[in-house]
Simulated scan of single mutants.
Amino acid sequence: MADRAVTRTGKDEDGDITSLCNPNASWSPRKSGDAIYDIENNVHTYHVPWKSGRTEIRVVNGSTGKYLRTDRDNTNKNNLDDLPDC
Rank of each mutant, 00 (worst) to 15 (best):
S63W: 09
Y67S: 12
V60K: 10
H44C: 09
N42R: 11
V59I: 05
V59L: 01
K51S: 08
Y46M: 08
R54W: 09
I57K: 02
V43W: 01
N41L: 04
V43F: 05
V59M: 02
G65N: 06
G65A: 05
I57E: 11
G62R: 12
T45A: 12
R54Y: 08
Y46S: 05
H44T: 05
S52H: 14
T55R: 15
N61R: 04
I57N: 05
V43C: 05
N41E: 06
T64Q: 15
V43Y: 11
R69I: 04
Y37H: 11
E40F: 00
R69L: 08
K51A: 07
N41A: 01
V60I: 15
E40T: 00
G62V: 07
T45L: 02
R54D: 12
I39N: 10
V48M: 02
S52I: 05
S52D: 11
N61C: 03
G53V: 06
L68M: 13
K66T: 14
K66H: 10
R69A: 15
E40Y: 00
H44P: 07
H47S: 05
Y46L: 02
E56Y: 06
N61W: 04
V60P: 01
R58I: 07
R69W: 10
S52Y: 14
T64K: 15
Y46Q: 02
